[in-house]
Write a protein that binds this DNA or RNA. Structure first.
Lengths: 226, 226
DNA sequence: TGAGTTTGTCACCGAATCGTCACATCGTTG
DNA sequence: CAACGATGTGACGATTCGGTGACAAACTCA
């Protein structure tokens, strides 16, 4: 019984690439190029997961996601949003939409497969992994925008918080400075990579003992360890 | 698009009764009399909800529920367990199984319908809107359009009240200015995001001591704290 | 119509935050 | 160990952000 995945993107090449990789990995794939088609397919044959691009003509990904959530048949289908801008991440995850995960363009097929596998493998009780995270005494709450150590709040600026979140979400995997710039700052920002260092320092200072979770991988980047 | 419900029970009479009532209420119903059949039907045509009797020959309800949870295709389908023994309730609702609700035999059709409606109507994030909220001395009455502090009414304009309500309903979670604009004002409004600030100020002024509930999260938005 | 309210916008200010640089320190490599 | 590249650190100026007061347009209600 192959899990069904619906891929929604208006660029045929992007769809094809994803479709190929997912089929390769053993999923049953269907596709849609706009909102109307996506909703129609999702309703008639509810998939087990939806990969949804934010940028679409007419009805955008946010609209589609909201609509899916309102209808019983599709309300529980997990959604992975694909977005170009880091600025949209807040909206995708925390607030009104409740997508299950997100990816920033451009992304590797491997990355997508990892997310899909993770979501499908968690049962129904699996909370959204990104809503709230715990690593020992360190707690990170995305919608509340709060980080705490042993129950005591840690005051973080918006950028520091986002940096921490991105690292924690990719816990265990090294993130290059470029990658962090892309995900935490804007996708095309012209910021010096050394700026990441400075923010890491400030983050470490504020985290205090919890800074032990932040590893430097010389020559590569940074890594969040559990 | 009728929501599909799968009813699993080994007593034909019980199944028939439930089936009749659910169809009456506008649901598409399928049935199964044992575990194997239930799993098979759930896999081939994932329903929107499953009503599952605990007492079954061979594979009991617990087993079935567990199995359903393990497979991606069915992991997210809500389950209402039907049990004869109150002693089993802990197990049903506990971590191990994660059923969404339960009923003890005998139950009235009305009761079942209420539970089903409740589960299907909640989106993926199971939360229900209250029409009256209390936060310490602050009271917000949605239908009567009244806010009060220590029993004393607070005069709010329509926009201010709506803003307060939206924030309070999402208590704890940060709301971006964009999000507030969409929810408090109209979807397509071309209003400047800074306008939100002004209304927050006015709201704070009028709330007086109750304004302590309104947090500013720099770089992100506003948050209602309890 | 006209007074009073409500609402959206703007300009300004102080403070928080940010990005960059210079320099110190650390690790690696030959 | 010496030299080089990478990372940590401290400081500083520029920018951004949110609070505030003022104002005019829109609206309400008599």
């Amino acid at each position: 019984m192959k899990p069904k995945i619906l891929v929604v993107d208006d660029e045929p090449e992007a769809v094809e690439l994803v479709e190929f990789n997912l089929k390769q990995a053993g999923y049953a794939v269907s596709t849609a190029v706009d909102g109307a088609e996506a909703l129609k397919k999702a309703r008639s044959q509810p998939p087990d997961l939806i990969v949804l691009d934010v940028m679409l003509p007419e009805m955008d990904g946010f609209e589609i996601c909201k609509t899916l959530r309102l209808e019983p048949v599709t309300a529980r289908v997990p959604v992975i949003m694909v977005t170009a801008k880091a600025a949209e991440i807040d909206r995708v995850l925390g607030l009104e939409l409740g997508a299950d995960d997100y990816l920033t363009k451009p992304f590797s097929p491997r990355e997508l497969l990892l997310r899909i596998k993770k979501i499908l493998s968690r049962g129904q009780n699996g909370e959204k992994p990104h809503d709230q995270m715990r690593f020992g005494d360190l707690m990170i709450d995305l919608p509340r925008h709060i980080a705490s150590w042993k129950g005591k709040a840690i005051e973080l600026t918006a950028t520091e918080f986002k940096l921490l979140v991105v690292l924690a979400q990719r816990a265990g995997r090294v993130q290059s400075r470029d990658h962090l710039l892309r995900d935490v700052w804007e996708y095309d920002s012209l910021i010096d990579t050394r700026t990441v260092d400075t923010h890491m320092r400030r983050l470490r200072e504020k985290l205090g003992p919890a800074a032990k979770h932040l590893d430097t991988v010389r020559g590569v980047g940074y890594r969040f360890v559990e």
